[in-house]
């Protein structure tokens, strides 16, 4: 895993050089900022669309994204039951810009959150999906720069997130019927 460590050192080397850059990284890597941005984008997507057909597609994307997020988190829990990887700062000297997380480093839960939602939306709406990949990628990169994840943790998180979104969007046809029922019921109350 030498390349993993080399890449980590490269990214982490930007930390601790400038207060402004450090705070920018902290702003991106915390649990609130990017997660809220992604949630707000999903909230907007629910009501977006110039025609009922487009809006229904967007609403399916939102429901798929939320289910992907849930599935991705369950997959992380399952992986953590059988595999524990210490954080980069556990046995090495790194510049840490955040608190000391105690859970397993692999896979990155933050990457799972961002990429499961962004991929789920991308499978329905390429443009909006690409927009959502931007904050998801910044969150993932900032977690390496901030010293809490190895690049391979992020890669693992991305794979888990993308796989969860793919499973929900493309391999769970029974959910399509559930989405139809939910959207129809919401539409009765003019909320879809």
């Amino acid at each position: 895993m030498a390349i993993d460590w080399t890449l980590f050192r490269l990214c982490n080397s930007v930390a601790g050089r400038s207060l402004v850059l450090d705070n920018l990284i902290r702003l991106l890597m915390n649990d609130y900022a990017v997660a809220t941005v992604l949630s707000l984008l999903l909230f907007a997507l629910w009501f977006s669309g110039k025609s009922p057909t487009v809006r229904e597609r967007n609403q399916r994307a939102v429901l798929t994204a939320l289910t992907s997020l849930l599935l991705g988190n369950l997959m992380v829990k399952a992986i953590n039951l059988v595999y524990y990887r210490p954080r980069p700062f556990a046995f090495n000297e790194v510049t840490l810009l955040f608190y000391y997380p105690s859970d397993s480093s692999f896979p990155s839960n933050a990457a799972v959150v961002g990429f499961s939602m962004a991929t789920a939306v991308w499978l329905f709406d390429r443009k909006m999906g690409l927009v959502m990949y931007v904050p998801a990628s910044l969150l993932a990169l900032s977690r390496i720069c901030g010293g809490v994840h190895y690049p391979s943790d992020i890669l693992g998180g991305i794979l888990v997130g993308v796989f969860a979104a793919y499973l929900v969007a493309r391999r769970s046809h029974f959910l399509d019927r559930l989405w139809t029922v939910i959207i129809q019921q919401m539409r009765r109350f003019l909320l879809a």
């Binding site: 009922p52 809006r55 539409r187 009765r188 003019l190 909320l191």
Partner: peptide
């Protein structure tokens, strides 16, 4: 008639 958000 339309249903849903369009009515708003």
């Amino acid at each position: 008639s339309a249903l849903g958000v369009d009515l708003m």
